[in-house]
Write a protein that binds this DNA or RNA. Structure first.
Length: 190
DNA sequence: CACACGATGCGCT
DNA sequence: GCGCATCGTGTGG
């Protein structure tokens, strides 16, 4: 009888995040987001995402000239957390090659209580602006592992929600029937 | 400097 | 369906 070792970590490599943002968003579905807080590891399966690049609804819509959006132009695999509505945080994964803006907003997790919706997801994981800039390919407290494969028939493609511009782009993806899909957004199919 | 508003969630109607 | 909390950020004067 040997020592009980934890399962090996299969952290997603930087190359995972390099492709087109919509492709990365699709690949992130089913992957397992991990967060270490106070010696405890919280994890959940990614079941809802949205892609943002340089479209009109993106924080990078007007180019690389604000302090906040610099990070969207940074290396793929970087964490982008922003604060909104005076009380909520949203967690994104930076995509695209360095110099081009792109990010995937993580909107819902299965396997955690109250992680349906981007702000609830952050609250469930204790993610705040302090986490902005972390490197998912190296950071000891925040990383993503591959999950079981997700079939195309499980994926619903819809319009992004909570935005006023570029509302017609079908850049929101979620897993059909998942409890972690954000509440008021289960509809809006198309 | 002032101001408008948001990649939300909740509670009430 | 609707109003609202609550404040950082971006934009314009």
């Amino acid at each position: 009888m040997g020592i009980d070792l934890p399962p090996p970590i299969e952290r997603l490599p930087a190359s995972f995040y390099v492709g087109g943002t919509l492709d990365v968003a699709r690949r992130l579905l089913g992957c397992i987001l991990h967060r270490e807080v106070g010696g405890e590891i919280r994890r959940g399966r990614i079941v809802e995402v949205e892609a943002y690049t340089d479209d009109e609804a993106s924080h990078a819509a007007t180019g690389r000239h604000t302090k906040r959006n610099q990070i969207m132009f940074g290396p793929p695999g970087t964490v982008y957390v922003y604060f909104t509505y005076g009380m909520h945080h949203c967690l994104n994964v930076v995509t695209e090659p360095e110099g081009r803006p792109g990010a995937v907003l993580l909107r819902g997790l299965d396997g955690l209580e109250r992680a349906a919706g981007p702000a609830l997801l952050c609250r469930a994981l204790g993610v705040t602006r302090q986490d902005n800039g972390r490197d998912l390919t190296r950071d000891p407290q925040l990383w993503i592992e591959p999950g079981s494969p997700v079939g195309e028939e499980e994926v619903v493609v819809t319009r992004r929600v909570g935005i006023r511009k570029a509302v017609d782009l079908p850049w929101r993806l979620y897993l059909r029937g998942s409890p972690g899909v954000s509440r008021r957004d289960r509809r809006a199919e198309g």
